[in-house]
């Protein structure tokens, strides 16, 4: 078990290192740097101004040197202006140049400054992750039980009327993308045009003060889309289990149908949906982009769009690290989960 964890941790670190280097390389291509300069300096700067802006901020150093700065293994850049004022990567928060640390990168716990949000990238990521985490929590709480119930009900008697009805429902929800269902929900449930006005059409206030009224629609929009998929997987798995030899044996021995479903079929039928559910975490982390934009809920997905749109190097790197972490941790959990669902699987 210990070796297994260590190996997983090693994979995680290596993946993060490779991925961040790729992101670093792509975000530091020359046109992207010009974009950074124009975004941070002034959108209407001339080429000469851009060049001098980049030079004064250490962007003209070799790529590997700057990647090293980000990691915290090489010294941060400094620049001395004509008037003798020293600026540098590690010189900020009114700390004089002499006292500022020489290195400030990931190893020193410093995620760098986000150019879009003007605060530490680590702070942005943790705040946004908390907001999206809250959205994800409610989505999971709504989506998973609903999907399992629908899937099991549909799968326990294949081809029954109940199965056909529920299957149609799950296919329809999965086939409707969020940007369609979200817009329909907003139009029907929030606008004066229809007149229902049950909910709020934006979730902006939900960032500080989530209520059923302003938070339910985004949750429902995501949950419905993901639900059909899990329900279909559960149904397939359930129908397969229900035709297994041991279920027939149980029936012949006179076990009641309810008991067969709850005690004998359910646990075996949950293995496949469990993987799918765990895979929903990474999907949710980035798949919420559309819903967050639609409902103006400023979480992780929205931050990712802002960072990518404005080539916010530090923030994109921080987001990559977090994404690698989330994907691998959830997969780790699902691997461990299998052991409990299926005793034949061993972690070695």
């Amino acid at each position: 078990m210990g070796v297994f964890f260590l190996r997983r941790l090693g994979t995680m670190l290596l993946t993060a290192l490779v991925l961040t280097f790729i992101v670093f390389f792509l975000t530091n291509l020359q046109p992207n740097l010009e974009k950074v300069a124009k975004f941070e300096g002034n959108a209407r700067m001339t080429d000469a101004e851009v060049a001098s802006w980049l030079e004064k901020r250490g962007y003209t150093q070799p790529l590997l040197k700057r990647y090293g700065e980000w990691l915290g293994v090489s010294k941060g850049w400094t620049y001395t202006s004509d008037e003798g004022r020293v600026t540098g990567r590690c010189i900020r928060d009114n700390i004089p140049a002499e006292e500022a640390p020489q290195r400030c990168g990931l190893l020193q716990g410093d995620w760098g400054q986000s150019s879009v949000f003007k605060v530490s990238a680590g702070k942005v990521v943790s705040e946004k992750l908390a907001l999206t985490g809250r959205l994800m929590l409610w989505v999971m709480l709504l989506m998973v039980p609903l999907a399992l119930i629908v899937g099991i009900l549909a799968g326990m008697r294949e081809a029954s009327v109940l199965d056909r009805t529920l299957s149609t429902f799950s296919i329809v929800t999965t086939a409707t993308p969020e940007y369609v269902s979200g817009v329909i929900f907003i139009a029907v449930f929030t606008s004066s045009a229809v007149g229902l006005k049950w909910f709020k059409g934006t979730a902006t206030q939900a960032m500080e003060n989530p209520t059923f009224e302003n938070f339910f629609l985004p949750v429902l929009t995501i949950a419905l889309y993901g639900m059909g998929y899990i329900a279909r997987m559960t149904r397939a798995s359930m129908t397969e289990v229900m035709t297994a030899q041991y279920i027939r044996t149980a029936r012949l021995k006179g076990v009641s149908f309810g008991n067969i479903v709850m005690k004998h079929a359910l646990r075996n039928a949950l293995i496949a949906p469990f993987t799918v559910i765990m895979l929903q975490f990474p999907w949710l982390l980035n798949g919420v982009v559309i819903v967050e934009t639609l409902f103006n809920y400023k979480g992780f997905g929205w931050a990712l769009v802002q960072a990518a749109g404005n080539n916010d190097i530090q923030l994109l790197l921080a987001i990559s690290v977090v994404s690698v972490f989330v994907v691998l941790v959830t997969q780790l959990i699902s691997d461990i989960g299998y052991v409990y669902l299926n005793p034949r699987i061993r972690i070695s």
Partner: peptide, 11 residues
């Protein structure tokens, strides 16, 4: 459209 939703939501 988002601005309009905000006005409707009295935000």
């Amino acid at each position: 459209a988002t601005v309009m939703a905000a006005v409707e939501a009295e935000e």
